[in-house]
Design a protein around this nucleic acid. Structure first.
Length: 294
DNA sequence: AAGGACACCAACCGCTGGATA
DNA sequence: TTATCCAGCGGTTGGTGTCCT
């Protein structure tokens, strides 16, 4: 069996900004042929570009369904909440924002939202106030050595935290400890979500445990929304059909069958992430050894 | 007016999983 | 079965415009 030819000769293709003429060629090609094998597009459209570059240009800029105006407060709030729930999975977040690409969301996060949070005293990784992280860091000192021991047994290479700390001190004690603490806290948060999801009851099939946080973005945008997750139906009575709504951090979760509204889409989207984490936990239980109590 | 700092974002880079020959 | 390619993804970079001193 033979090999496929390479998509392009990378040393001879054009790089950098796209011209209006190049854009027009892509648009004309897609209009007449549709979206298909991108490796053939440069040749058929008469472009001296890599197929991958053409695909990115189309995906991130030329697609007719894209919005090119600035992000609305509602979109910003959605980004913040999904980022709080699943982290930097930009493509998944972008799918919840019609007309936005993962690149758009990522850029907006890195240039605007992350800074806004930091200025408010909120850590953009954990979405917790810096002050709370510092106090958590004090508490975590009681936990880390114990976890380190179990890790040592697996890897036969004890981690010397005191040495790591001293090397960090030489750079910038506060920044480095803060960064390390963020990583640890974020890691525990993911593990905690996976562990808690594995114990959920069958009835709560569509239940979503978005992480609760002292910081709620909508506090700064709108007034008085729900700030806690409730697993009970708002009416207090769970109907036989199972159709009801709950709330979580202000997001109304509609537990309707075959519902295609935004809230339900959000639930299935977050739940698909949690399912992935459950599969990882099932396949690699040793990763979660000793952490499930968090 | 000049130039340095900063903000923005399009585009690229490198990695991964699935598809393919 | 295996090597390679493709598409998708997140992280990073570089060019350009704007603001500030």
């Amino acid at each position: 069996m033979g090999r496929r030819p390479p998509c392009c000769d990378k040393s001879h293709v054009k790089k950098g900004s796209w011209t209006a003429e190049e854009d027009a060629k892509i648009l004309a090609y897609v209009a007449s042929h549709g979206i298909g094998n991108w490796t053939l597009v440069p040749q058929k459209a008469g472009l001296n570009r890599c197929g991958k570059s053409c695909r990115l240009r189309w995906t991130n800029y030329l697609r007719p369904d894209l919005k090119h105006d600035s992000f609305t407060p509602h979109e910003e709030e959605l980004i913040l909440r999904y980022h709080q729930a699943i982290g930097s999975r930009w493509s998944l977040i972008a799918k919840q924002l019609p007309g936005r690409t993962d690149n758009d969301v990522k850029n907006h996060w890195n240039t605007k939202l992350k800074k806004k949070l930091s200025k408010m005293g909120i850590d953009p990784i954990t979405h917790k106030p810096f002050g709370q992280l510092l106090s958590d860091y004090g508490n975590i000192n009681d936990i880390i050595p114990q976890k380190t021991r179990s890790s040592d047994q697996r890897h036969h290479e004890p981690i010397d935290f005191s040495r790591a700390e001293s090397s960090l001190t030489m750079i910038d004690p506060f920044q480095e400890q803060h960064a390390t603490m963020n990583l640890i806290t974020a890691h525990f948060q993911v593990i905690n979500e996976a562990a808690s999801s594995s114990t959920s009851s069958p009835e709560s099939k569509v239940q979503v445990n978005l992480p609760s946080s002292p910081f709620i973005w909508s506090d700064y945008l709108v007034g008085d929304q729900e700030q806690e997750c409730t697993n009970e139906p708002e009416s207090g009575i769970l109907p036989a059909s199972g159709e009801h709504t709950t709330t979580c951090n202000g997001l109304v979760i509609d537990h309707k069958k075959d519902s295609l509204d935004v809230a339900d889409t959000s639930v299935s989207f977050v739940e698909s992430i949690l399912n992935q984490d459950r599969e990882i936990q099932f396949d690699f239980p040793q990763i979660f050894d000793g952490y499930s109590e968090y």
